[in-house]
């Protein structure tokens, strides 16, 4: 193993440093940046369409809908979580709000079939998100 240190040769180093590096094309940096910007735009469009809107707006809309529907459920089934015993003073105020809820949901009859469709969409959305996160940057081609 005495040969192991013999490669450190200043003469060779100085000579090799006079050699030329190879030159890529003049448009090299622009070509790479064009590709990268295209990738970024794809990502941005994805974020805007899926993450930006759907995550928060979808979650917010679903939350509001769920809350309103829960209140409506209590109203239409003559069940109540706010009673006269609890605070008779604020009930008249809530009554007017509840009446407007009733107006909103009056014609809205959700069927079990609709629930299944909504659940399927939510499930597909969740699966899509999981796959995109765990297989980021990988592309799949399906052939038959």
């Amino acid at each position: 193993m005495t040969q192991n240190n013999n490669f450190n040769d200043d003469f060779i180093r100085k000579l090799v440093q006079k050699s030329d590096t190879e030159q890529p094309s003049k448009s090299f940096t622009n070509n790479v940046m064009d590709n990268i910007i295209a990738l970024e735009q794809e990502k941005a469009e994805y974020r805007f369409s899926i993450k930006g809107i759907s995550y928060w707006y979808f979650a917010g809309a679903a939350g509001i809908f769920g809350l309103l529907y829960t209140i409506y459920f209590f109203l239409t089934n003559e069940k109540t979580f706010i009673t006269q015993k609890f605070d008779p003073a604020i009930i008249p105020g809530f009554e007017s709000i509840f009446q407007s809820f009733e107006a909103i949901f009056e014609s809205f009859k959700i069927s079990s079939f609709t629930i299944i469709i909504i659940a399927a969409i939510v499930l597909l959305f969740a699966v899509d998100q999981i796959l995109r996160r765990t297989h980021a940057g990988k592309y799949f081609t399906f052939t038959f």
Binding site: T21, E22, Q23, P24, F28, T29, M33, I36, I37, E40
Partner: peptide
Amino acid sequence: DVSAYSSLIDKHKEMVYTIAFR
């Protein structure tokens, strides 16, 4: 700051290209 990447490319492109060419 995506544009900063062009400086990294300019800094290393000759050597990266040289390795690929070698």
